[in-house]
């Protein structure tokens, strides 16, 4: 068994796990009861699945030039996914679309009207 076969096996494992995690993320987005829970499903398994797929692709391509762009995609995904989800979560909280029965502790709702300082985003 040469090392290219080994790399292909690793790539196949990474791709399979990544696709399974993407499926789990989709099931979570469909099944979980409220928006903020759904966002958890949309961030964590999704980012990990994308990272695994990119690692698998790197092992399959085995070209040093391609690694750079894959690293760039992974880095952008790691940085942007939390920001996007934070924006969505904040918008939903400010719009008051919160299922209060599902929260056992809510320390934000009582202070939210007092937040007068300018928002971070323009």
């Amino acid at each position: 068994m040469s090392w290219t076969d080994l790399a292909d096996v690793i790539a196949a494992a990474c791709l399979l796990t990544g696709a399974a995690l993407a499926l789990i993320a989709a099931i979570g987005v469909l099944r979980l009861p409220d928006l903020l829970s759904r966002m958890h499903a949309a961030t964590k398994p999704q980012v990990l699945s994308l990272l695994l797929v990119l690692i698998g692709l790197g092992f399959r391509l085995r070209e040093p030039e391609a690694i750079g762009i894959l690293v760039l995609v992974a880095l952008f995904q790691l940085v942007t996914s939390p920001v996007a989800n934070h924006m969505v979560g904040r918008a939903s909280f400010r719009a008051g679309q919160i299922d209060h029965d599902r929260l056992i502790v809510d320390e934000l709702s009582e202070v939210l009207p007092q937040i007068e300082e300018p928002r971070g985003a323009p």
Binding site: G28, P45, L103
Partner: peptide, 22 residues
């Protein structure tokens, strides 16, 4: 965290409770 979310997703979701913490 992915494993935890996966377990919560595939299990029963009726009694899922969350919190907003400061």
């Amino acid at each position: 965290s992915s494993v935890l979310v996966a377990r919560a997703t595939l299990g029963p979701t009726k009694n899922l409770r969350n919190a907003v913490v400061e």
